[in-house]
């Protein structure tokens, strides 16, 4: 009975993680767009790269200005995505709290009871808590990575940041997979 309810919580966690993955790929593509502009800025700041366009007054100013506007818009969008990711973290918190509520009246014996090959209630709860901790830590980590991306970053720094963002070091996919089983 209790186990059934916890299974439902797991199903909801799964949905939240799917939502997270979607936001993660959205964030990565925004990051990619922002970094290609940042990497382009030094090229656009040099007169010698304008070839035949040099004769056009205002071209450099206009081009740099327009790129900065676009860049700012992407930064803004990334902040939005981060807010949505935070929403996922909050939902996971809520699900885990609900699980605690469900198990409030259970005795230690019930908590550690195994029925057949099924896990005990305690194991289920620990699994949920582990997932919650990973995603919360990853959110905090991501927001610091995202705020490190500025137009003064070098290509090397950008590549490193991108790697950190892609890797999601606080989330072990394997572990999540095993827990969700």
């Amino acid at each position: 009975m209790m186990l059934k309810k916890l299974q439902q919580k797991y199903a909801r966690i799964k949905d939240e993680i799917a939502q997270w993955d979607e936001l993660q790929s959205q964030l990565l593509s925004q990051f990619g767009n922002a970094s290609s502009i940042i990497e382009r800025l030094p090229v656009l700041s040099e007169d010698k790269n304008y070839g035949g366009l040099k004769f056009l007054p205002g071209i450099k100013e206009a081009l740099l200005g327009k790129q900065m506007v676009t860049l700012e818009r992407i930064f803004f969008d990334m902040k939005d995505t981060m807010k949505e990711i935070y929403g996922v973290v909050l939902s996971i918190d809520k699900i885990v709290q609900d699980a605690f509520q469900i198990l409030r009246g259970s005795t230690p014996h019930q908590m550690h009871l195994h029925v057949g090959i099924k896990p005990s209630l305690q194991q289920c709860l620990d699994g949920l808590k582990a997932v919650q901790a990973m995603y919360k830590a990853e959110y905090l980590f991501k927001s610091s990575v995202v705020s490190s991306l500025t137009c003064k970053c070098s290509a090397g720094e950008i590549a490193a940041l991108r790697q950190l963002l892609t890797d999601q070091p606080n989330i072990s996919k394997m572990e999540v997979q095993t827990i969700l089983k």
């Binding site: 382009r40 090229v43 656009l44 040099e46 790269n49 304008y50 070839g51 035949g52 366009l53 040099k54 004769f55 071209i59 206009a62 081009l63 327009k66 790129q67």
Partner: peptide, 24 residues
Amino acid sequence: NREPLISPSHEVLQVYLTTWLADL
């Protein structure tokens, strides 16, 4: 009066492409 575009470098082509896309 412009300078003719002869064997443009990668950077120059990048500026041309950005100009095309930017809708200045």
